[in-house]
Design a protein around this nucleic acid. Structure first.
Length: 562
RNA sequence: UGGGGCGUAGCCAAAUGGUAAGGCACGGGACUUUGGUUCCCGCAUUUCCAGGUUCGAAUCCUGGCGCCCCAGCCA
């Protein structure tokens, strides 16, 4: 990003903040927060929010808090808080000393609740859950007041205290705000503030058996932390009047401004935590960090970089219109980053044996190869060459169509870094007709892959010497969902059956033995790959395909078929 | 059908009354020892629709239409 771009108008939230700064609102401070609930792993949609909140703080000399919104112990788990901290750090953001938990505020929240009761703005309601729903009314019809709405302050105080000390069963009583049962905004129809849950909380353990609801907790937590801009997604727009109501009634010193933006939707995947959990629990994927998952853990294992993800979040923009970003943009971002960084190696994914008839039996030559043509500082390496090599099955066609300019009977191609070879004959399996091997001849005058006689060789293939090659496992990943939008209820039927293809007999050049985890590779002419962080060992190398290279031939081939 | 939002290209998204940025995708060309990268060129006579105000409207007004969110003791 250039200075030019940062100084442009930017998104509407940036504009609001710079207006506030101009007016010296909040004493010129910008304090934001990223408030995940620890009930699942972070995904790329959260990355948008993280980049927004931390980015806004950073660009305005402010601070951004990481706050776990842990008010529902039934769904939350310590495993998730660890993964979330790890993922935020990995993405490249630092909350410094500002790590908080809503549960840290349970005492204060309880005091606030009492204050609300004392001012006559909250009451203990003893309707059942079902009755509360009935009394709430509908979109068109106003609700009815709860018969418990007129309890005295003393009575409410006593009941609420009994709720706290555990005298009541789950679901028997709740604390409600006394607002307006006929409000056209359903969230204002005496919303529940506290409910009884006799479960152990992952941080407060058994100290509490009443837990505050989101609408009560969130605004007050923001206020306690002196948040200036509380940025959330569109579906909370209906809750904003309640956010403001609570803070106004309690007359708190700090009243943050809630601003809503559209959450990220991406084609060919799903972002719903519930659905992602379902994929994990029903074993459609191996785990939360399965490389097909849009989770940060999955993307990381897939080989995505924080740079690419941040760039993506920058490019998609921030607005209020519901939208769905094409996953091609994410793929563009990772290619752009990896092209600069990835070490090139030759790996034959689907090997086809080639015997070079006129090459001496036991001769071995070494060719020098650029590790990265985009970056000479990455140096060179040696690649051994011999009489028997493997090339990619897809690089040969017995009866090639017009625009195919790779190997075919009687045709010549260049072996990258090595020689020109010409296909002399094809050996097939007698029974199946399958091509088993190719016999070729090489031109000794083309050493290094070049000739001075002006010969035109359009095709260049990667290759691996058979006797030097290293067998590796390669996992080819593709979109999780076949169709663009996964919003359907029946998203399981949209799962791409080919989202993972495992190749067990890929053969790599010997330098692959030095492959390191966390280093990106480009398998020449194929795509970007990384060592699998979990399953790869020095004996059994396992690579994950991050993303394929752009492939204009496949487009031509596809067009021909149709 | 109550309330709250949102409609600018295939997908995102700028524009703040002065004559429709940018990116992705797509198409064409150049270059290329990766059919990669890079580089050029093209891609909205018009902003959901219809009226109106104005010298001038994506922006303002009126009226339609379409989509999203809300009836958890979830967040």
């Amino acid at each position: 990003m250039t200075d030019n771009e940062t100084s442009s108008t930017g998104n509407f939230i940036r504009q609001i903040i710079s207006e506030d700064l101009k007016k010296n609102k909040n004493n010129g401070e910008v304090i934001t927060r990223f408030p995940p609930e620890p009930n699942g792993y972070l995904h790329i949609g959260h990355a948008k929010s993280i980049c927004l909140n931390f980015g806004l703080a950073k660009d305005n000399n402010g601070e951004c808090h990481l706050r776990f919104d842990d008010t529902n112990p039934c769904k939350e788990d310590i495993e998730y808080v660890e993964s979330i901290k790890n993922d935020v750090k990995w993405l490249g953001f630092d909350w410094g000393k500002h790590l908080y938990y809503s549960s840290d505020y349970f005492d204060k929240l309880y005091e606030y609740a009492i204050a609300l009761i004392k001012s006559g703005k909250a009451y203990v309601c003893s309707l059942s859950g079902e009755e509360i729903r009935e009394f709430r009314g509908t979109l068109k019809l106003p609700g009815k007041n709860s018969p418990y709405r007129s309890r005295t302050i003393e009575e409410n105080l006593e009941l609420f205290e009994k709720m706290r000390v555990g005298e009541f069963e789950d679901g028997t009583h709740v604390l409600r705000a006394k607002i307006d049962m006929s409000s056209p905004n359903l969230t204002m129809r005496d919303p529940t503030l506290y409910r009884i849950r006799r479960v152990t909380h992952h941080r407060t353990l058994n100290k509490w058996c009443i837990y505050p609801m989101y609408d009560f907790t969130h605004c007050l937590s923001d206020s306690i932390e002196n948040i200036t801009h509380s940025i959330c997604t569109l579906e909370f727009e209906n809750n904003r009047p309640l956010y403001d109501w609570v803070l106004d009634e309690l007359k708190v010193k700090c009243h943050p401004q809630q601003i809503e933006f559209a959450r990220l939707n991406l084609t060919n995947t799903i972002m719903s935590k519930r659905k992602l959990l379902q994929l994990v629990e029903e074993k459609y994927v191996s785990s939360w960090d399965d490389p097909r998952m849009p989770t940060l853990a999955g993307l990381r294992r897939r080989g995505f970089t924080p740079v690419a993800i941040r760039d993506f979040c920058e490019r998609i923009g921030v607005a209020k219109a519901d939208s769905e970003v094409n996953i091609a943009l994410l793929e563009h971002c990772i290619r752009e980053d990896l092209n600069k960084k990835a070490q090139r190696v030759m790996v034959v994914l689907k090997p086809l044996k080639v015997i070079i008839d006129n090459y001496p039996e036991d001769k071995v030559e070494e060719f020098e190869a650029d590790n990265n043509p985009e970056d000479p500082s990455m140096g060179k390496r040696k690649v051994p060459f011999s009489k028997i090599i493997y090339i990619e099955k897809d690089d040969f066609m017995e009866d090639p169509p017009k625009k195919f300019f790779r190997l075919a009977p009687g045709r010549e191609i260049r072996l990258k870094h090595a020689y020109y070879i010409k296909c002399e004959s094809v050996v097939k399996d007698e029974k199946t007709g399958e091509i088993i091997e190719l016999h070729c001849t090489y031109d000794p005058d083309t050493r290094g892959g070049w000739s001075n006689d002006g010969r035109k060789v359009r095709g260049t293939s990667h290759w691996v010497s058979a006797s030097h090659g290293v067998l590796t496992e390669v996992r080819l990943y593709d979109h999780l969902l076949l169709d663009k939008s996964g919003d359907d209820k029946d998203f399981i039927s949209l799962l791409n059956p080919d989202s993972l293809k495992v190749l067990n007999d890929a053969i790599a050049e010997p330098s692959i033995k030095e492959a390191k985890k966390d280093v990106p590779y480009q398998f020449l002419r194929q795509g970007y790959f990384c060592v699998d962080s979990i399953d790869s060992t020095s004996e059994n190398l396992v690579f994950n395909r991050t993303v394929s290279l752009r492939d204009s031939w496949s487009k031509i081939a596809k067009a021909k078929k149709q």
